[in-house]
Every structure is written in C-alpha cells, then in structure tokens.
Design a protein around this nucleic acid. Sequence first.
DNA 1: CAATAGGGTTGCTTTACGAAACCAAATTGA
DNA 2: TCAATTTGGTTTCGTAAAGCAACCCTATTG
Lengths: 148, 148
Amino acid sequence: MARKRFDDSKCSVARALNEVGDWWSLLIVLHAMYGTRRFVDFQQQLGIAKNILCDRLAKLVDNDVLRKVDVGEHGSRFEYRLTEKGRDLFPVVVALRQWGDKWNPTPEGLPLDLRDRETSQPIQQVTVQSSDGKTLTIRDVFDYEQTH
Amino acid sequence: MARKRFDDSKCSVARALNEVGDWWSLLIVLHAMYGTRRFVDFQQQLGIAKNILCDRLAKLVDNDVLRKVDVGEHGSRFEYRLTEKGRDLFPVVVALRQWGDKWNPTPEGLPLDLRDRETSQPIQQVTVQSSDGKTLTIRDVFDYEQTH
DNA sequence: CAATAGGGTTGCTTTACGAAACCAAATTGA
DNA sequence: TCAATTTGGTTTCGTAAAGCAACCCTATTG
C-alpha cells in the first residue's frame, strides 16, 4: 500500500511534516534562509539530484512555502524565494540546528553558534515560554511524567 | 544509488534530520511527549505498521533519543521513554506544531492552542531571540535579503 | 488455556533517488 | 548571422529503499 499521507490528519504536526518532513525539503528551506535562490545553487550546495530538487521545489511552491519568481528578461529565468509561510519556519530550523549542534557536534568540535548580526552577540537557545516569559518544559505543557 | 545519508555532514541541521527527519520519527517523539510509552499504544495512535514502528523505535534508541526500559517482572515488557536528548526536541516539536496550526489549520478551525498547565495561560509563540530578549528574524541572523 | 504484549519475517507495492538524456532559451564566437 | 556552447530546468529510467499487510513466534497476563 502507498505510504501514508497526513494531509487530513487531525494532528497539526503531522500535517506540517507532510509538507516539510522529508529528507530534503527542510534543507532546501534552510538554504533559502541562507540566501540561496537559484536552482543550480541549491543543487550544488545540497548535492541533490536535479530531478529530486525539481520535485521538491515544485511541492514547496505548491504548499506555498516557496514562490517561483520569473526574473528573466524574456522569461525562463527563475528564482525560488521564501514566502511568509516559509520564513515562518525560522524558529523550527534554528531549534533543529541548535539541537543538532548540542547533541551531534562536529568531530572538529567547533560550536559555530548563530549570532545577532547587529550586536554580534550569540542568539539565545530557542525555548518554549509561558505568557510571562518563563521557560516551559514538557511537563508544564503536556500531561507527561518522567519517573526518571 | 542509495539514498543520501547525512551522518557526517558539516551541517548540523542535516545531521539532525538524519536522526529525526523521516516521516515517522518526529511523530513518535511527539507522542512520547504526550505520554505514550508502550509499543501497542504508539502503534494504535499513529496507525503505523508494526515493522516500521519496530525499526523506528530501534533507531531512536540507537540515537539515544529514546531509552528502552524493561518494566516486566521477568522481562519482555518494555517501555520507550524519552532521554534528555529526546526531551530536548520539545522546542522543535512545539515550533512545528505552531507552524502547522497557523498555516494549515484544521478544517474545523479550532485553534486548540497549548497552555501552561499551571496557569492555564496560552504559551507564547516559539521565536528566535537575541541575548537581550528581542525577537529576531532571518535577516537579523543570516545574510538574507528579501526584495519582497 | 485464552488473550495480550512485543516483536520478527515474508511478500508485495509504492516511493525516493541518482544518472543521464533531453530541451528551450540565452550566450558566445566566427 | 548562424552554428556551437552554456545555462536552467524537465523527463525518463532503473534501482534501492520505504512502507503496509499478514502471518508467526515467544512470553506474560488473566
């Protein structure tokens, strides 16, 4: 039987994963955030096969995460730019990157943290916060208990 | 040729996706945060085939996201519990859920937001923040420009 | 002894993926 | 000016992997 799809799942995480939950899509979004816009640049930076890139870009455009913009003089030159929906994945990507840096650091061990370009200060760890700014754990939000 | 793997990628997002970037893994982690611990409960709640669940649980245990705990009197009763590494995915999951709620709301349209159980107040949107607490955009962190 | 939990195995279909061919528009260059 | 090449992207194809269903097996619970 076909792979299960989550388009109509009642779980919004499942629906989100349906759009950006495969191997390549979130990496494409990440590189779009780095500033990449052109097909060939995505291809070279990611080392992805052209047909797969083609497919993923089309799906991301379909899902309104990217926008395909004609930038050619007479057509046939395109750029893929993040929509607001795509830009809204910023916290997801940063949280994932911080998680990867913390738990799977490079063998070289350089932390290479992200910084606020204006102040050159490292950014904060992405956390879940209550309305008054306290950092929340799983226990505070879900009915989750950990008997260590 | 085989699917590309990112174990040794210099990009920590790629390495992270290598561990939790497939269709099922993050949903399993999510349900573990909801409180699910048992094989059959995961299977029924997710509607996942048993061998796939088996495989994913083993990989998550291998990657130290889950811990397999023997809770039987004489063995053969197990629970899968989040490790600290697994619990550390909390901001990722919440950010993804908020993104899904915002951009792919349920047809019924109920926001069904997350709340701090102690105060019953809705939690904040997960954001990327500077060291002094300002919310940062992509532009503030990456060399990203958007010509609208 | 029956039912349930926690898997493992087999068989089959669908998808993901890379390689490479293909193609139209743009550029080069003679 | 007109063939040759490059750029940007799509299509085709063969293979490897993902995925589901169904059956099996052991140990525990009741």
